[in-house]
Amino acid sequence: MTIVYTIVSLSAIGTLAAVILYFVAQKFKVYEDPRIDDVEKALPGANCGGCGFAGCRAFAESCVKASDLSDLFCPVGGNDCMTGVADILGMEAVVQTPKVAVVRCNGGCDQRPKTNQFDGASSCAVAASLYSGETGCQYGCLSHGDCVTACDFDAIHMNPETGLPEVIDDKCVACGACVDACPKNLIELRKKAPKDRKIYVSCRNEDKGGVAKKSCSVACIGCSKCFKVCPFDAITMANNLAYIDADKCKLCRKCVVECPTNAIVELNFPPRKPKTDLPPKPAAKTVEKAAAPKESATDSQTENNETK
């Protein structure tokens, strides 16, 4: 007899619950565009936030809502992924050139001597909020690795010898997490060139040339030599600092040779031929910056700047 009661009562409870659940589900039903799911499936699902949204789902929702995809781009999936998304939504994909993170500080332990020892929480953000850093350069890398912690793709690592982070180009998806994590704003997303070749000014020091040179031997001293030698107008000078526009740069490497402090870095190039037949320097361009020194021998360059 007990077993009958049990079966009956349990069935009754089950039926009741099913009825309640059904009505509740009807009552609280939320319409969701089925395309959101489709778009989300087309995305890499890394939830890294590189697109500027809180995860892939949020990005998919924005894609579905958007009238065109020009402002939306998934840096992880790249163009292929966005073409897929565009197909689902029947829109035009906007092709963007792939990018890669570049660390713009070259001041390793040998080039940038320490002036004090930091002994707080091992975090760049904490150190930066406290003071200018362990070295004389207040713009340089703090070497506590916030960018490494921020990277979800294992694409950035500290080099124990130099104390500087290094990006593994193949792993980097240009999500921008390290760019946001760096309190010194050293990391930049630059256009990917063939064979991962890169030329960039590996310095953010805005001090006057003499001050910069004193604290770091590979600092950009704002001498404008690269600016003058560049045949493509890719280099701009601001605040005693040169900047190479990746869109304009044709990777000719003229500036690299010219830089007196080796602040301009070339990566993944074949070794140079012996420097016998360097092309003649182009005629001096009008220098917009008044502070820029006249063209002079490389050796006297720094002294020249220091007096200013």
Binding site: N116, Q117, F118, G120, V126, E134
Partner: peptide, 8 residues
């Protein structure tokens, strides 16, 4: 000798 810097 380098002085130590740490937050309070």
């Amino acid at each position: 000798k380098l002085l130590t810097i740490s937050p309070s």
